[in-house]
Amino acid sequence: MTDAAASLDTDDPRAGRTALGHPLEELIACPSCDALYVAQMPPVGGRAVCDRCHTVLISPKRKAGMRIIALTVAVLILVVSAMFFPFLDIHRLGLGNSASILDAATAFETGPMALLGLATAAVIVVVPLVRMLLILYVLTPVVFDRPPARHARRAFRWSQELKPWSMAEIFAIGCAVALVKVADLAQIGFGPAFWMFSVLVVIVLFNDNYLCTWSVWKSLERPRE
């Protein structure tokens, strides 16, 4: 490594490539600060962290693929079934009502508000579902030691780009806030879908923790047959 440092002092802009003495596919650049490293897989359970900005670069986990697939299937089942069960129910003066996720999304019904309804449905149901399906599509062949699926790389990139727009867990917390807000207006109870979404919040957190994107990208480099 000392050799590499010495030769980098030259002004040749290309020095990096030759000086590193490593083919490009063995390098990793921190997406946050552009620091360049030679990628080395840390031991399973360990983490490779950018020592300039502390972004986690590589974090392989034991049996991560299988666990992610299991958790992703669980999320799929929870989101789909939570759509049809009531989320919260309300009672006052003998009158009652209950709302499911679909009711919440269609609550904005008039004019421009309908757009908001569509957007709500998208971020709490459609985007999480699409993301889970994409992850399953990408990871299943890899975990079972098959060549990557067709367009798997693009699918995985999309699943990562959709991540900030997947807001199922925020919706779950929103329910708790809504409950507090109308507590003095009427009696409110939790429906089955609320508990499903509570479980979902925990699973989503675990799932993101298991997913090491660098490991997945490495495994997708294997050519299709």
Partner: peptide, 16 residues
């Protein structure tokens, strides 16, 4: 940095 080494980094997958 990747830039100084005459490389460009992919922000989606960290490859250079």
């Amino acid at each position: 940095t990747a830039r100084e080494a005459g490389l460009v980094a992919c922000r989606a997958c960290a490859r250079v």
